[in-house]
Design a binder for these strands. Structure first.
Lengths: 110, 110
DNA sequence: TTTATTTATTGCAATATTACGATTAAGTAT
DNA sequence: ATACTTAATCGTAATATTGCAATAAATAAA
């Protein structure tokens, strides 16, 4: 039905999925990479850098901002977006923990 | 339009997004965690463990298998699913690289 | 062969996501 | 005030995802 049944999962699982979903679009990956490269950025730059229309980029930025992954400061007519470093570290830890799960028993059937 | 314009992004960005999307649903996160915990598993276990219907779980498993994240071995009537360790290491590296991007200049405007 | 058992597939309904044109909002400059 | 610039919002169309009932397929057990 297109409706994720969040209530049957742990908070960690839901958080993991929510953040992963934010990384689940190449435009948002590109935006984050660009923000890292420039360390500060306005939306217009991104529209030029990435090939999508301005409302589309704005929408992706909003999504990242809602999740707290990026921050936005109004600077005159333009907006300065950048990575939320604190949140980034927190997310990094979440993912590293997830990836560091190791199988105890190596005698796998596959 | 619901259609991601993959052609305007790098291969790395697309791969990153594709894998992240697989992690972008709590059921799939839960499946992976369960596979790590048990190191081998049949689909039925997952149906009991997670609260979703059998076809739904089967669909999520297929998605993970198509991406190469998990492997499945037929064992009689049941199927033994497990993590594809090689692929897991590769994905782990991809994400670690992504998370290790650091801002050069700390004098941020935000 | 018939009957369970277990997983995959099909078909479909409901919801979510992606993209963008048109417009609005808010600040700058003239 | 008027014109310009930049980003957000609205509305909408197209596509994707999620979930499950029903069914099929495949093996095992009787």
């Amino acid at each position: 039905m297109g409706l994720t049944k969040s209530e049957m999962f742990t908070e960690e699982q839901n958080r993991m999925a929510l953040i992963a979903k934010a990384f689940g679009h190449p435009a948002r990956v590109a935006i984050l990479q660009h923000l890292f490269k420039l360390n500060s950025c306005v939306c217009g730059d991104l529209v030029n850098e990435i090939g999508l229309a301005q409302p589309t980029i704005s929408q992706h930025l909003k999504e990242l901002k809602t999740l707290g992954i990026i921050k936005g400061n109004i600077e005159g007519t333009s907006v300065c977006y950048c990575i939320n470093q604190d949140e980034w570290q927190s997310i990094k830890q979440l993912f590293i923990q997830f990836f560091e799960q190791e199988t105890i028993e190596k005698g796998n059937c596959c």
